[in-house]
Amino acid sequence: MVIEIETLRPDLSGNLGEPMTAPESLTATDKTTVAHKTAGRVSVDDPIMSARQVNVYYGDKHAIKDVSLDIARNEVVAMIGPSGCGKSTFLRCLNRMNDTIENCRVAGDITLDGQDIYDRKQDVVQLRARVGIVFQKPNPFPKSIYENVAYGPRIHGLAADRVELDELVQTSLQRAGLWEEVKDRLNQPGTGLSGGQQQRLCIARTIAVNPEVILMDEPCSALDPIASAKIEDLIDELRGNYAIVIVTHNMQQAARVSQRTAYFHLGDLIEVGPTDRIFTNPLQRLTEDYITGRFG
């Protein structure tokens, strides 16, 4: 087992950063019973979002167990792991999309710029304006392309007049790399675009509200490789302005777009670290097994 220097650094939040030696018995088959501590360093300096000891329950099901993770500014964090491991659930905790699911209970602290987002005083509408989300399946509104992008700024009152709104729509579409393709048909329905274009439209719709963090829940899983490549390029460009958290099943994608990677397994956050280190030199057997394709 190789222990990185980084993992030995003392952590702000106690022993979370301490390396964790995987028990010899820990294999892919008896992984469920092991109470877990995350390997690698979960905290960063000056995080924009910070989650500590987050537990999520769906009724009796314990979906997320004691997960702690920081998200840095101008950084892409990839969350990987087998299906049902809780990475999407965790992602949806970050802008309280889980509120819409009945029976879902979230415990623990999640802060955005130091403020508890589950605080009673926190307005979800404001939170979701600051933490945008892009879903797995492109879900444009059955309205025109223009209306799709303009909807967010309109409900939040971000544009004073029509001219400003037009500009905002244009810059959002430009940043999403869709402007050239749709500038002549802004009044046509967004649902008439191809899958990849629809997903970029959804990204444009999200950045039109000018969020601080963008959550992406498997944004490329419904797309072909060429459309996926475009989204990946886009994510790389957006990193300059936003913190991005992306859930993906595609490990090459995680390796290409992210700076840090978090590996989830059955509700536990097994390991966090710089992406190149995770993919070349994982601390945990489970991580290694997963990224080398032994299961998943």
């Binding site: 945008g132 892009v134 967010g152 409900i155 999200t206």
Partner: peptide
Amino acid sequence: VPPSIREAALGIGASSMQVVTHH
């Protein structure tokens, strides 16, 4: 009405009432 439409609207910060009346 597909839930994805509701999620999309909620995801960019529409209130529940706006989700209902707009979408």
